[in-house]
Amino acid sequence: MILTIASGKGGTGKTTLATNLARVASRAGRVVRYLDCDVEEPNGHLFLRPTVLERRVVTVEIPRVDSTRCTGCGLCGRICQYHAIVPINRQALVFDRLCHSCGGCWRVCPADAITPEPMTIGELEIGRSDDVDVVTGRLRIGFAATPAMIRGVKEHIGPEGLTILDAPPGTSCPVVASLRGADFVLLTTEPTPFGLHDLTLAVELVRELGIPFAAAINRDGIGDDRVDRYCSSEGIEILLRLPDDRRIAEAYSAGRMAVDALPEYEGLFRELAETIESRSTGAVSTKGETD
């Protein structure tokens, strides 16, 4: 099963939930993989502290132009929507980091002057934390090919067991890349106006993608009850309420997981893991599916 943990608003506990769930599900005997898709600032490794067993690079294809064959026809520049290849004075100028690797330019080139070549955009760290397989993707600084990097991380989705994808915040392309192919999505939020606002955006996105989902409220007890009212009016199930417990934050700030520092929370996460696994069999009903 592929579970993506996402949120509209940042800082609402995606990594807290993802790492604690991974640990607890693994302790319960499941085969578990944790994939950090927040490739611009991965932080799950700070809590799972995996032993890194292997490092790999992730590459994308970018155009290389043979200037002796280029006729300056300009077709490559016309098909590129990102101005990553621009024909000037019978030579094609390539801006590597603007390229989205669509392959349009080398397909339309009538002179066979353009060939794809790999460009490294980031690194993967593949490791193990107790019984949890941990894959961390790290996009190189200055590169913008975030969705491509996330697809590189997702190549390590396990063939069996539970794969937990820790998504980046927001609702833009990197989040979509993290959500595609998931069997179930858990949207974390906090009971504040900001939490609610960004939750509604995330809900719209997940409904658009047609993936079953539920909500989790972190720091339950602060703010107001508008997230609750929204979820109830939209028919969204709230599968977890993690209380606003200062000790969880203290453990987090020291790089420790709640279930390790505060064993009384293990039951809450175990229950969540079991509920989600049972839901993946298709028993979830939300308004979005019936609409």
């Binding site: 520049g77 101005h83 000037i88 100028l93």
Partner: peptide, 30 residues
């Protein structure tokens, strides 16, 4: 304008228009 690569697109516009010099405030690397 457009979504991305605005500086490159602008450069292409003035080149195609036959300009031999550009006078502007700020110009980025692309």
């Amino acid at each position: 304008g457009g979504q991305g690569g605005a500086g490159i697109a602008a450069g292409k516009i003035v080149i195609d228009a036959g300009a031999q010099a550009v006078l502007t405030g700020n110009c980025g690397p692309n």
